[in-house]
Every structure is written in C-alpha cells, then in structure tokens.
Amino acid sequence: MIHLQPIELKATEDTPEVRFSAADGLLVISGRSLPENAWQFYQPLIDWTRAYCAASAQETLLELKLDYFNSSSGRFLFELLTILENRAGDKSKVQVNWHVDHDDELMIEKGQELKGLLEIPFRIVIQ
C-alpha cells in the first residue's frame, strides 16, 4: 500500500473522466479525449503513474473506456502504458482492459495497435 493521493477528474466536453486509485490499484480513463493541449491534461496523470510504479508492484488494473481520442492524446496514452510496462516487478500483475463497441472499427484498430506494441496483458473487451 502506498500513500499517493487518488486522482478523480470529471469528464468535460473534451477530456475524459479519470479515476486513479493507488489504494485499489485501479486506474480508469473513460469518455472522449480531444484536448487541444493534451500535454497539459496528461502530464499529471503520467507523473502520478510514474510515482505509483516506482513505489508499488501491486496488482494493477487499467480500464480504458474511450469513445475516441485525438492523435496527441494517443501519444500520451501510449506513454502512460509504457510506464506500466516498464515498471519493476512482475509484469503479469498489470492488466489493461480496452473497452470498445463492437461496431467501432476505429477504436478496435487502435486497441490492436497498442496491444501489439506492448508486452503486458492487454485485453480488448468488445461490447
């Protein structure tokens, strides 16, 4: 158990809802992510994830339920995933679930791309 303040952000018209809890080992990002300045939005999440991974090797679940995201958000989502991938300890303790609608080819393809680039358990959950 580590003492990292949880992050809880409500969705806005162009940023997703975020719930990161170190206590639960649960990281959730859901909604759509279209900020003009993705760096501003994602850097605190990336810093948090880095601190979390440095301090803990506990079982971690990342739930991604994105309707869609712009290309600059994609870059930061990938960075966040690589931090989880590179953390010390047993990689199998990290699980990524990529939730996507069955008819959403674009998001299925994006999930497949990320899965192919990462060496962590990555499940595409088709609804």
Binding site: L34, Y68, N70, D101, D103, D104, E105, L106, M107
Partner: peptide, 14 residues
C-alpha cells in the same frame, strides 16, 4: 451508421 459518424468526428477533430 454510428461507426462512420464517429470516424468522421475523429477526422474532423484531427
């Protein structure tokens, strides 16, 4: 179709 609309939205934003 919803998927086509979503794709259009994505490209529009890009």
């Amino acid at each position: 179709a919803g998927a086509q609309g979503r794709k259009a939205g994505h490209v529009l934003v890009e």
